[in-house]
Design a protein around this nucleic acid. Structure first.
Length: 1163
RNA sequence: AGGCGGGUAGCUCAGUCGGGAGAGCGCAGCCCUUACAAGGCUGAGGUCACGGGUUCGAGUCCCGUCCCGCCUACCA
């Protein structure tokens, strides 16, 4: 069928990436809540580009997502981006800095404009990279945390929390970055060990009776001291408690944050938080600049004196030091104290210094007014703990149907969808010959088929049907006295999560129900089921009843240990500071009344007409100013949307935010009319038009204005909060915000909760925890079921990749050099739980070789496939053992991959498919087919036979390749798509929409598989000897064999041709004894004699067998030691003892053979 | 300080139920055998960190120690 040519990853990947996107292959318009699999991508920051961590993250999700899609789920994977407040602002500020400007030079509005100019470029770059990696996301559902819908959701969320008393504004000590000039949350501060100094400073007692010495690492803060604290039990200082000291240097009046004046005389107080062992045991207290001191200050009612401004420059409270940078002030203060003799000593001191995670500036703890989410409230924290610890119980009332069919004979066999019931979830085999099927679909029907005369089983069947319906269906088969009993990891864990416990008892597995009387069941093969009634005359009746269903909604961390990690943090939770003094982000939707001081939270809920809502949102988003013209509004609303440029902003609103207002159009004219009516008092006379005084026209400027009024006093004198929200506040809404919340959107109903979240462990607190908090609070439901937490990507030395270290491996570069398939496969196979991934470029190279191998295997198959191949298939010869063997291996591989992916064991899955492709398929099977593929026939009769056999080999090759490609597809989507599309058997648009292979019992042939394994041993033995004798492969040798074992003999006879080809032999005949001039070896009970012409290095040969002998002897010794141990014989299980005995026999047999060979060599 | 993860071949890592130590890469030898030299075949290479315990039997379970990595907290 023609030659594939060489593997060119660039061409292939580019082609299919485009194809998938252009065809919208991964868009599902209306996913059914039951069959869906929904995932939201952790939105990457719109700063810079993707790094290897993103590549890993995207790859792992895509593997799972493609796998589920192929398994029949309607997969929706939502992509998107995070506006990343501080990070993005930092990048743009840096660009300004290069021009010698700061954001303050530009002003808020201009600055934000700059960011909006820059963001799309970055977003495009990231999007392209995602496409290159091959992510099968639904681009039509793409979102941005700062898009119109999200901004609205953020305001809504803020309002709900505010009104529930879960958001408050308060004075608190926060981490302040003097460079970015904003507050940071605790999580945004990185601690680094540094060697600093510890200064011991004497504070003279007021009464002149001496002094008390305090130690500090930040002497500059002493200017803000308002007390000295000691431990109440500390004997050294007890007598000083209540006295006062004179703060050195400070001979000026200081003002507290409330405006009161404070003098230099400060009290010595007692507080249990003071550690007697540290420093001198006396501590200076600076409530406005230290977290601990803040608490002490609050509890003791101390004055708060701030001595620095927002740039960490000393302020007017610093008297003579005012205007100095904090470090300069520190130097001078130390100097002055030294002069005054008040510096007792200074010593080196290692301590952790908090730094801004973004710009690495040392943060300054400072008291300020900030907004907080009260995450410590039980409504948030307790629920968030509960859904992880035990699960949230949800009650749902529904109608349940049981459909009972009576048939006179039926069989239960394979494939997946049964035409009667839709998706088949489970088949219960209650007793031999009497089965029923519990399938579920819309309306919850369980179909119970039973044989006439076996009504005794009906009750049992109903009971199980209820269980299956209650759980939304299982997807494995269960049988009572079933024939097979295979336990699988995936099944086990799946059951364990629900209400079943699996216990292995002896040679069978027992499934215990937790709620009901334990009832033993066997778990048998997972598979697909179809009911095939023998007779069409089925008597049916339907029973229906109301049922209250309780479902446990639980968030499951994988690997499990992250659960502990998460919970520990939740137990020690602190309120979350959400205000940031930056400009890029969601401005807090609070308007302060300048007259009465009230805080007003506005959202578009305050208005009920679409126009009002849209105008309000545009203003709140800063898209238009408070004053506007209808033309300006039209311009904004008709402009291409940022996230979906194919839509206008108005379209975007309709699609993602205002579902109810589909028909609303909005242009300057209609707006003008609307506003005029609104403002015209005459309109009051027009029926149906209301005027609320919401808009006002200024004839001078010809601009309109939306009038917001204080909800308390009615004043129009409102001013919006300047601060914006922490980025994580909006991304915490991601899994429901992206689906249209707060609207009751279709997507929200169908896709929430999501099925899986894949974050890196570094954002468990930042993001995962907050997702759980906000998700459970707003949705009363978990945001996701499984959280697969992956490791970090490091360089080959195990160091974090960073630009400054210059050890980054750029995914784009790797994709270019080795291909996205190689990149993905490498990341997948290196992803083992609980370990960081160490990467070096060589790894990618290695797995590119794998891609190449696959390519060439396909090339071999296709180049030997005749054009009329399909028409020949009906005339093909029966399958041979090796065909059945490769089918067996194929199915075992499918099974292994499925089981591994069920538990997110990416590495294991990838290794299984690698091993199969390379070793089984390429190294052995393809080699074995060459005999049939290349056979030349002489006579007509032979030719026909050869043709039929060739067709069989080709058929098997095609069959196996096609299925193997499907197994491989989630890992290597591009190459598999390319090859698959070239196969004559390809039917369909894309391999990614085909079914993922499951183990099919009818394609498993244990007998043939065993025989081929034996063949492989024999071939390897001959090859090994050849290699030992250094006989080049081109020399065909005569060889002979001898065995007593009929089984072995038949293997040799069946596969003689293969042995000749694979071991490069001329003949392989049976003999009674070793022929002259031959060298012997053996494989189990098969003795092999190789006819070697010319010199043989007997010394070397002897050495080889001596080494083998030593190995056998040491093994024998181990076995003998065991077998001579009475306790072993007494206590070990019979089969283990048996096994050891067998090993002993084998080893002794081997030893005899080796000795015989050695005696020949020596004799 | 507390917690988590890890220590197995030169390197990176698997190792399921406690029952004969594995893979890939690298290395060495032989080979351009009609899919693939980005390949084939063969081979060498191990005190499973250390000590103790449980057990007939421990890489695997328990206790302790030592290293490495990470996280969290504190550090006036």
């Amino acid at each position: 069928m023609g030659d594939l040519g060489d593997y060119n990853h660039r061409e292939i990947e580019e082609k299919w990436s485009r194809f998938w996107i252009e065809r919208n292959l991964y868009h599902v318009e209306k996913p059914d809540a039951r069959s869906r699999f929904s995932v939201v991508i952790p939105p990457p920051n719109v700063t810079g580009s993707l790094h290897m961590g993103h590549a890993l993250n995207a790859t792992l999700q895509d593997i799972v997502v493609r796998w589920w899609r192929m398994r029949g789920r309607k997969v929706v994977w939502v992509p998107g981006f995070d506006h990343a407040g501080i990070a993005t602002q930092y990048v743009v500020e840096k660009q300004l800095q290069d021009q010698g400007k700061t954001r303050f030079d530009l002003g808020r509005e201009e600055f934000i404009k700059k960011v909006w100019e820059w963001v799309p470029r970055s977003r495009e770059a990231i999007r392209t990279q995602f496409e290159k990696i091959g992510v099968s996301v639904d681009w039509k559902r793409e979102r941005f945390t700062l898009d119109e819908g999200f901004s609205r959701a953020v305001r809504k969320a803020f309002r709900e929390l505010y009104e529930a008393g879960l958001i408050y504004r308060g004075e608190y000590i926060v981490n302040w970055c003097p460079k970015d000039r904003t507050a940071l949350s605790d999580l945004e501060v990185e601690h680094e060990e540094e060697t600093g100094k510890l200064w011991y400073i004497r504070y003279p007692l007021e009464d002149g009776s001496g002094y008390i010495t305090v130690a500090t690492t930040r002497p500059e803060t002493m200017l803000g001291d308002t007390a000295v604290a000691v431990h109440p039990e500390d004997e050294r200082y007890r007598h000083l408690i209540g006295k006062r000291v004179r703060l050195p240097l400070v001979n000026w009046k200081r003002k507290t944050i409330r405006g009161e004046e404070v003098g230099p005389l400060i009290p010595i107080i007692a507080d249990e938080r003071v550690k007697t062992e540290f420093g001198t045991g006396a501590v200076k207290v600076t409530p406005a600049h230290d977290p601990n001191d803040f608490e002490i200050g609050r509890d003791h009612n101390l004055p708060f004196v701030k001595v620095m401004d927002e740039r960490a420059v000393m302020n007017e409270n610093a008297g003579e030091f005012a205007g100095l940078d904090r470090y300069e002030a520190r130097r001078r203060i130390v100097e002055r104290l030294k002069e005054m003799g008040l510096l007792e000593k200074e010593e080196d001191h290692v301590h952790a210094v908090g730094k801004c995670y973004r710009c690495k500036t040392v943060v300054e703890p400072v008291v300020s007014v900030q907004w907080f989410v009260k995450v410590t409230d039980p409504r948030i924290r307790d629920t968030s703990i509960k859904v992880v610890e035990e699960g949230l119980v949800q009650r749902e009332e529904r109608e349940v149907h049981l459909q009972i069919a009576e048939v006179s004979g039926l069989t239960v066999t394979v494939p997946v969808v049964d035409d009667v019931s839709g998706t088949t979830r489970a088949v219960l085999v209650l007793a031999e010959g009497v089965e029923f099927l519990a399938g579920t679909r819309e309306g919850d029907l369980a179909y119970i088929y039973h044989l006439e005369g076996r009504d005794d089983l009906l009750d049992e069947a109903k009971r199980f049907a209820d269980i299956f319906l209650g759980r939304g269906g299982f997807d494995f088969l269960v049988g009572l006295e079933g024939e097979i009993s295979v336990v699988r990891q995936g099944v086990e864990s799946r059951i364990d999560r629900g209400r079943y416990v699996v216990v292995a008892e002896g040679d069978r597995v027992v499934l215990y129900s937790r709620e009901e009387t334990p009832r033993p069941l066997q778990v048998i093969e997972r598979g697909k089921a179809r009911l095939e009634p023998a007779h069409k005359s089925i008597k049916m009746r339907v029973e229906r009843r109301k049922e209250v269903r309780e479902e446990k909604k639980r968030v499951l961390f994988i690997p499990e240990h992250w659960k502990r990690f998460y919970l520990d943090w939740m137990y020690n939770l602190k309120d979350w500071c959400i205000s940031r003094q930056i400009w890029w982000g969601h401005r807090i939707p609070v308007w302060y009344c300048e007259d009465c001081g009230a805080e007003n939270v506005f959202t578009d809920d305050d208005f009920d007409r679409p126009y009002d809502k849209i105008i309000f949102n545009l203003i709140a988003d800063g898209k238009i100013g408070n004053d506007f013209t209808p033309e300006e509004v039209e311009k904004v609303i008709k402009a291409p949307n940022f996230v979906h440029p194919e839509m206008t902003v108005l379209d975007f609103y309709k699609r993602f935010a205002f579902h109810k207002y589909h028909s609303t159009d909005m242009d300057a004219n209609s707006l003008r009319l609307f506003l005029t009516q609104e403002a015209n008092p005459m309109a009051m006379l027009t029926p149906g038009v209301s005027t609320r005084g919401l808009y006002r026209y200024d004839p001078k400027t010809k601009r309109w204005r939306m009038v917001l009024r204080c909800k308390k006093c009615g004043s129009e004198n409102l001013k919006q909060e300047e601060d914006v929200l922490d980025t994580w506040f909006s991304s915490a809404l991601w899994p429901f915000g992206a689906f249209g919340w707060p609207e009751k959107a279709e997507d929200l109903k169908n896709l929430y909760p999501t099925d899986l979240l894949v974050p890196g462990f570094d954002i468990i607190f930042f993001w995962v925890a907050r997702l759980i908090m906000m998700g459970t609070y707003f949705m009363k439901d978990i945001p996701f079921r499984d959280v697969y937490v992956h490791a970090l990507v490091r360089d080959e030395k195990g160091q974090k990749m960073s630009k400054t270290k210059g050890n980054v491996i750029d995914p784009l570069n790797i994709i270019d050099k080795y291909g996205a398939d190689a990149l993905r496969f490498t990341l997948a196979i290196l992803t083992v739980q609980g370990r960081d991934i160490k990467l070096s470029e060589k790894r990618f190279e290695g797995y590119k070789h794998f891609a190449n191998k696959i390519w060439n295997a396909a090339r071999y198959i296709l180049m030997n496939t005749p054009e009329d191949f399909l028409s020949k298939i009906p005339y093909m010869a029966p399958m041979r053992s090796e065909d059945k063997w490769i089918l067996t291996r194929l199915n075992e591989t499918a099974d292994e991959v499925n089981r591994s992916l069920e538990v997110y064991d990416f590495s294991r899955a990838a290794r299984a498919i690698y091993e199969f492709f390379w070793t089984d398929l390429c190294d052995w099977y393809i080699e074995m087919t060459k005999e049939r593929i290349y056979r030349k026939a002489e006579t007509e009769e032979e030719k026909e036979k050869a043709d039929a056999e060739r067709t069989t080999a080709l058929y098997t090759l095609h069959y196996v390749l096609e299925k193997a490609l499907r197994i491989l597809h989630p890992f290597m989507p591009f190459i598999t798509e390319e090859i698959w599309r070239r196969l004559p058997s390809a039917d369909g648009e894309s391999i990614s929409l085909k079914e993922f292979p499951e183990k099919a019992q009818e394609e498993v042939f244990p007998e043939e598989a065993r025989r081929v394994e034996r063949l492989r041993e024999i071939v390897s033995t001959v090859r090994s000897l050849r290699s030992d004798l250094q006989i080049e492969p081109s020399r065909r040798l005569k060889a002979y064999f001898r065995t007593e074992d009929e089984e072995t003999k038949s293997v040799v006879n069946e596969f003689r041709t293969h042995i000749l080809n694979l071991a490069r032999l001329e003949t392989f005949d049976e003999v009674d004894s070793r022929p002259e001039g031959t060298v012997a070896t053996f494989s189990g009970d098969l003795e092999i004699f190789l006819s070697v012409e010319g010199e043989v290095d007997l010394g070397k040969l002897r050495e080889i067998y001596m080494r083998r002998r030593r190995k056998v002897l040491s093994d024998l010794e181990r076995v003998n030691r065991k077998l001579s141990n009475e306790n072993f014989l007494k206590k070990a299980p019979e089969e283990v003892v048996e096994k050891e005995r067998r090993i002993k026999e084998e080893l002794e047999e081997d030893l005899r053979r080796i000795d015989r060979i050695l005696s020949i060599i020596e004799g």
